[in-house]
Amino acid sequence: MDLYEYQAKELFGRHGIPVPLGDVARTPAEARAIAAEIGAPVVIKAQVKTGGRGKAGGIKAAPGPQAAEEEAGRVLGMDIKGHLTRAVLVEVATVPFEEYYAAFLVDRTAGSFLAMVSAQGGMEIEELAERDPGALVRLPIDPAVGVDAAVAQQLVDKAGLPETAAATLQRLWDVMVTEDALLVEVNPLILTTDQRIVALDGKVTLDDNAAFRHERAPEELTGSLEGRARAKGLNYVKLDGRVGVIGNGAGLVMSTLDVVAGAGADPANFLDIGGGASAQVMADGLEIILSDPDVRSVLVNVFGGITTCDAVATGIVTALELLGERGRARPIVVRLDGNNAEVGRRILSDARHPAVRQVPTMDGAAQLAARLAAGA
């Protein structure tokens, strides 16, 4: 599960990592109140789970409360790479003297952990690695040792960071291990004009498989699509695209994602309703996907086996009845094949729901869903 920046910084604060003073706002009035409480120039930062906010206009400076309210009004509701901005982080404007990059992640290829540190922060790490590969220090981390004082010093020395950054690297590693994270990234990690090390940004991905070991805030679990899906027993992963995908069986869903991409669109999620899913599971899955504001169209691709196509069709009709007007807002492309496919198609045809379009082939369904997501 990816955290928003403000959630990542809350974790950092609990582990002794300095972050700018600030709070999250969901309305322009809240942004004004936070800026007034801070009593200094602030920055308004869109809270979306994607990069490139600055280039998209999602980060704005505000010298005072009135400007904070105005800028928050501009940023809230902004679409950044398909992600709708529902909240902004209002925090004190912090001037960097130098900018660095630091990250710990799970290296699945090596079956271990990897540290990546650079004295050149503030840009996309992919751009840095391509432009100047030698500027990015990569160091495998032995899980039995972790990042102790010696390893932290080694990273600081190799990357050319100030000595004071070593303690912060150790604390970032503590976040990685203690919180069961898959990724902990700070870009930029800055040295301020008064020589303090501060995490000016934060990106954290938590391992959902370890959620049972943690008491997460409600917004981190049930408030997220992933948390709501997990509560319903659904195998759901949020992605960055605009075509919602539902299928039965991990292999079929993965193939569907590939076909959607081949049709020129990006999938918004992975959702496998399983081989023996009931109509209720189908309804739950559709409700989750239609709750995602990034979704512009939905592709339901089911091959009937244990899960019969008539059960899937009944689930779709049931879900749309429960969703009411919300179920009419976005088109749903359905491809049914296999066990009881004709019965399932007839159920959908008889329902005459204005959002549902049936296509007999997977390629054709993906192409239509891609066109609909693009507004064509």
Rank of each mutant, 00 (worst) to 15 (best):
Y236S: 11
S224R: 04
Q195K: 05
V243Q: 00
I197G: 02
V237Y: 05
G227A: 13
A199Q: 01
D272T: 07
L200E: 04
D142V: 08
R228Y: 03
P267C: 07
L200D: 00
L191S: 10
L239W: 13
T205K: 02
T222S: 15
A217H: 14
G251P: 09
L252E: 02
N248H: 10
D266Y: 14
V260W: 03
R242L: 12
P143C: 08
V243A: 04
R216M: 11
G274V: 03
A210T: 04
A277C: 15
G247M: 08
A268N: 07
D148S: 11
R216H: 12
G262I: 09
K238S: 08
A152H: 08
P267N: 06
L221T: 10
D208Q: 09
L189R: 00
E179V: 00
T168Y: 11
G244Q: 00
D174F: 06
V243D: 03
K238R: 15
A181R: 00
A199F: 01
L172S: 02
L271M: 13
D201K: 04
I273G: 01
T178P: 08
V175I: 13
L169F: 12
S255P: 10
S224W: 00
Q153E: 15
A250D: 10
T222M: 10
R230W: 10
A152L: 04
G233F: 07
A268Y: 00
K232D: 08
L161A: 05
D240L: 05
E215Y: 11
L225H: 05
D201V: 05
I190N: 01
G160I: 09
T205L: 06
G264F: 06
G247C: 09
A211H: 05
E219F: 03
L225P: 01
L200T: 07
T222W: 14
T168F: 10
L225G: 06
D148R: 12
P143H: 13
A159V: 05
P267A: 08
G146E: 10
A261C: 11
A210K: 05
S224I: 03
L221M: 08
V175C: 07
A210D: 00
F212Y: 14
S224D: 03
N187I: 02
I197W: 04
V186P: 02
L191P: 06
P162R: 10
R216I: 07
A210N: 07
